[in-house]
């Protein structure tokens, strides 16, 4: 602990605090989903008749957003691009937490191409589209809450501050990596006193804390939605309601 600046101590505490809160709250939510009983069989049919089939259905939902695709092609495109870009950005960020850097992560920073950075740009563009759609389409405007605009803005600002660090106000990447690696290995070191990086980090921490209390819980919820996860075998196997009185 010796040699840490006051600023560093504050940020190190914030990082560990936010991450722990996230873990506890996220896991307790998911635990709640997992243990709440399903009294009846309610798969949206036609539904797979085997567990393997359900795994396929779920893979479709998770990796391709099949139901959203059926529902609205433009929203699908915006949402899909956003999530894909986000995945690439997150993959790129793993380089700040892993040493040596594995190949797929390294590819995201391929010199000259920088796919991870461009993914960040695509992500911001997708967010702008998703935001404006909330204002354009009367139905979507009606259902949009403050929280919906807030989350798009928050992630957008995170992306923007990140991209700025790459293109405009260059950050000492080595110092950042030392700091993040220190956090990951539980040997924290001083935070680089770079305002852009600190803004970026603060926004990320806000997102991490907000996550389990927001609609972002769709990340956990999707795996527990009975209309998608249940096997259609109602006649073959008797499903028991644990709280039935008779």
């Amino acid at each position: 602990m010796e040699g840490l600046t006051g600023l560093s101590i504050v940020f190190i505490a914030l990082c560990y605090g936010a991450f722990s809160l996230f873990l506890v709250a996220f896991l307790s939510k998911v635990y709640g989903y997992a243990v709440t009983p399903s009294p009846l069989k309610i798969p949206t049919t036609p539904a797979p008749t085997t567990s393997l089939g359900v795994a396929g259905r779920m893979a479709g939902e998770v990796f391709f957003f099949t139901s959203l695709f059926k529902g609205n092609k433009w929203t699908w495109l915006g949402g899909y691009l956003f999530h894909l870009a986000l995945a690439a950005v997150l993959l790129r960020h793993l380089r700040y937490f892993l040493d040596p850097v594995p190949l797929p992560v390294a590819l995201m920073t391929y010199p000259g191409l920088e796919p991870g950075v461009w993914a960040g740009v695509v992500m911001i563009a997708a967010l702008v589209y998703l935001f404006s759609r909330r204002l354009w389409v009367d139905r979507v405007k009606y259902i949009s809450l403050f929280a919906d605009y807030f989350i798009l803005t928050l992630i957008g600002l995170i992306g923007l501050s990140g991209v700025l660090m790459k293109f405009v106000i260059r950050t000492d990447v080595e110092a950042v990596k030392e700091f993040t690696l220190g956090l990951a290995t539980l040997h924290p070191v001083n935070i680089p006193p770079d305002p852009m990086f600190i803004i970026h980090l603060l926004l990320v921490l806000a997102l991490v804390v907000y996550f389990p209390f927001s609609k972002l819980m769709h990340l956990g919820g999707i795996f527990f939605s009975p209309t998608r996860t249940q096997v259609d075998d109602c006649r073959e196997i008797r499903h028991v309601n644990p709280w039935a009185r008779n």
């Binding site: 399903s38 759609r133 139905r139 259902i143 919906d148 769709h218 919820g221 939605s225």
Partner: peptide, 14 residues
């Protein structure tokens, strides 16, 4: 489970 999960997961995608 349905109600519990559905209350949390809607993202108001439209």
């Amino acid at each position: 489970k349905s109600l519990r999960v559905f209350m949390d997961t809607c993202v108001r995608c439209g």
